[in-house]
Structure formats: C-alpha cells, structure tokens
Design a protein around this nucleic acid. Structure first.
Length: 230
DNA sequence: GACCAGGCACATC
DNA sequence: GATGTGCATGGT
C-alpha cells in the first residue's frame, strides 16, 4: 500500500522522531487528557455515532437527554422507539439518520454479541474492525473511535483534526486517504492503545485551543518549533 | 444571516 | 475510482 508522504523531512526514521516529538510537545503543554469524555464504554459508542460531522457541545446535549431518561444502556436503548430516540438526540443534528445508525449498531451488538460489550472486547482487532465497518452508518473514523476508546484496541483514530494537523506540518499530503494516514501513525509509533488514545486526544485539545477551523501557525507551538529547527 | 462542526451512504459519471 | 449531495442542529 502506497503512503502519500512528503519527501522531506518526514521520511523513515525522521517520521518516527517527528511524531514522537509532536506528542511530547503536546503532552507537555496540555497534560494527560484521559479520554474519551464518557462514563462508560457504551456511552463512548453512542457519542462516537452522534458526533459525526457535529460540534461536540451539541452531542453533549443529546447525551444528557439520554442519561436523564436512563437510556445509556444497550438494552434500554434497543427497546425505545425510533421516534422517541430521534426526539432525544435531536440537538446533535442529523437526528433521523443517527437514530437509524444507533439502532443498526444495537442490532449488530445483540445479534453478534448478545448485547454484551465485554464479549466484543474479547474479539481480535482485525475481525472486529471488519464487523463494525459492516454496520450501515459506521465508517472508519467512527469504527476506530469505538475500537480505541470504548474497547481499548490499539488503533489510531484519524479525524478532521488529525488530518489538518498532519497536513499543516507537511507530514502528509492534502487529500491523503484515511487508511494511508492511519498507517503513517501506526507504522511509526509503538503499538500501544494508551499512546494512540492520548495522542489523538492531544491533537483534538491542541486543535480546539489553537487551530480551530484553520491553523493559526503564529500561535501554534508545533509550527513555532518547526520554524525554530528549520 | 453565513459559516462551521470529531462522517457517512448513496447516486452519478 | 472520483466527485457531488443529503442529512440538521446550535454556537459564533
């Protein structure tokens, strides 16, 4: 598989060093993130689906609605009507399609694992990823968020923030495919779910603090460090 | 009022 | 395989 990586300086050993340096800088600035912001693995899964193309603050409103009705459990959520679920998650946007996606995931969870997340956790990463990607409405980012943050599997999550930061630092080309971008991280970092978890969370923290909708290279410590070393 | 936010599936070419 | 479009709310 061809990985679209800029020729210089992000190659081979350099890439490993750069990725670890970026992690080190972010960790020094923002500290441990202890992600995902949720009380349970199931809440992580629901949040991962609800956050698709949506501001997290809107997702929080929907999560709060579900918590208030004590519905953040697989069986409870499986048993409520689609109309009721749609009404509760309305603040997260795209509520009709997300209702279907939540129900699709629950159908999969119950048909394949009897509704038990601990049974999912016992399944190997590659098999489980294929299964989750087979659920209509679950794409690579949502699947990997579930695998890493809900099921503690060592896989790196690529999202809009990750894409933006790697393009800005010229680690990858603009428009790189999801799997290629993921390989850049996974081939150049130790295969450690805790590291992948913390790294992605730090990228989000940094993006929200500095880059937001577009990179602000004047304030960005990563860009400042890059310029200093140039 | 316009723009943006932690995607994804589907239709069309 | 690549590109365009629909899905929707709430904050800035």
């Amino acid at each position: 598989m061809k990985v679209q990586v800029k020729k210089s300086p992000s190659k081979g050993r350099d890439l490993k060093i750069i990725l670890l340096k970026v992690y080190s800088l972010l960790h020094k600035i923002y500290g441990p993130q202890n992600w995902w912001p949720a009380d349970s693995s199931f809440e992580v899964i629901v949040g991962a689906i609800l956050t698709q193309n949506t501001n997290w603050s809107n997702v929080e409103k929907a999560i709060t609605n579900l918590k208030t009705d004590n519905l953040l459990h697989p069986l409870a959520l499986r048993n409520i009507s689609t109309n009721k679920l749609a009404a509760l998650i309305r603040p997260s946007g795209y509520y009709n399609i997300k209702t279907k996606r939540l129900k699709n995931f629950l159908d999969f969870l119950f048909s394949s694992y009897g509704g038990k997340l601990y049974r999912m956790k016992q399944t190997g990463l590659e098999t489980l990823r294929k299964e989750i990607l087979g659920v209509n409405g679950i794409g690579p980012e949502t699947a990997d968020s579930i695998l890493l943050y809900a099921l503690d599997k060592p896989i790196f999550v690529i999202d809009a923030y990750t894409r933006r930061i790697t393009e800005c630092l010229k680690i990858t080309c603009q428009g790189s495919k999801y799997d290629d971008l993921q390989l850049v991280f996974m081939q150049n970092l130790p295969n450690d779910s805790r590291l992948f978890n913390e790294y992605h969370a730090l990228i989000v923290a940094h993006s929200k603090a500095i880059c937001k909708t577009k990179p602000d290279c004047e304030k960005c410590i990563l860009c400042i460090e890059k310029r200093r070393r140039a």
